[in-house]
Design a protein around this nucleic acid. Sequence first.
DNA 1: TATTTGAATTATGAATGCATAATTCGTTTT
DNA 2: AAAACGAATTATGCATTCATAATTCAAATA
Lengths: 229, 229
Amino acid sequence: MPMDANSTADVMVAPISRRSLHEELAARLRDMIVEGALPAGRKVPERELCERFGVSRTPLREALKVLASEGLISLNQNRGATVAALTRADLEEVFPIMGALEALSGSLACARMSDAEIEAVAKLHDQMVESFKAGDRPTYFKLNQAIHRAILVGSGNETLVATHQMLAGRIHRARYMANDDSDRWRAAIAEHELILAALQNRDGPRLAVILSDHLRNKLASVMRHFSGE
Amino acid sequence: MPMDANSTADVMVAPISRRSLHEELAARLRDMIVEGALPAGRKVPERELCERFGVSRTPLREALKVLASEGLISLNQNRGATVAALTRADLEEVFPIMGALEALSGSLACARMSDAEIEAVAKLHDQMVESFKAGDRPTYFKLNQAIHRAILVGSGNETLVATHQMLAGRIHRARYMANDDSDRWRAAIAEHELILAALQNRDGPRLAVILSDHLRNKLASVMRHFSGE
DNA sequence: TATTTGAATTATGAATGCATAATTCGTTTT
DNA sequence: AAAACGAATTATGCATTCATAATTCAAATA
């Protein structure tokens, strides 16, 4: 079987997924926390998690350290880990930051996204409007997130995406909660019309302002429905 | 010795500093990396660090995981840790984000800082100008950082401070490097005059713009002097 | 009976040990 | 001599063990 000099480098083998255990654990726990499977304030004893995942404490503890540095859990000396509970103050801190980050992403995206990519966002937008009309909140929520993410990714700034995602993880549950508010829902759709229009016009400064306002309004809605401390 | 009912709660004992080892190690390593004691790209073998700090591998590895999640080092499966090397692309990604964060902080600070706090910034500013005139770059650099930090803290948004600090850690060395550029130095002083004026006038929107521009100019200067990949 | 005390239990912090992947370096082969 | 192969070495990933702090809970005391 003849092979040319560089053949091994050219063959794209499926990457043998061998994430380290702590990485895999961090990802799983992150999902569990963000999705609410581990409710806020809950203690997360190492023993229990080790048994559930079938691993030893070492990689689990490494994962917990990472999640703590992401702000998803809090570690108390000799007292274990608890899922970080969101306070009103947290939300009031995080939303403006996400607003600033999304504003920046919008500004960059207007300059850097291809027409095809913008068209793809428009398609997501239309689907989102459809699920709004159908009253399908879960799908609406997913498409909404997809749009914001597409603009973020469209900025071409991976660090920006990562930073935004980290903050978004902390407040994911709160955002979803506030979703059952019909007035706000209508308003959000209207804002998204403006977002799409600004993006299609490649009006960066305007999109930045709209996104920032959008997040501010979202915060107000979340705060109205927030039942935490 | 009579004690009233709540006396134990009222006595402010010096907090017995018992950070866990991984926390202490993370802090030390973070400093070493940020200050350049561990040069970028350098391998950091666990064994060596364990001996240097006199600890076992377990807490050290936990600290490495945290630093990796902060972007200060990169972990390669079964191949250990290396101090993350900054690329031009990294700088081009991080500076705009820091610009957006500082812009937000400035906007908030104009609304929330007390007159006394603003006066303190003015004092820092004057000292900074003095060290500029004296050609004392290290002191200038410290005061410069102190001013930016004061505005960040003045925003009253701890998450904002933490997020900014994380990004700042990654690019600390590059920022310092670019400091030996007399033209840029003069320009930076001029920009800082504008910053102080906007803050004293509590003109949030203007301060936001100035800070964003300031960071953009800083990036340009850093890029001119950047010798990395 | 409520509060306090302290032994027993449990959970976490850190060190050590073991398995395996990666690297090194001497040997072989062309 | 250069490249390639493979055994020996080294470093890392994970599990286990040991030490110690925190918690629990029953007994003692006011």
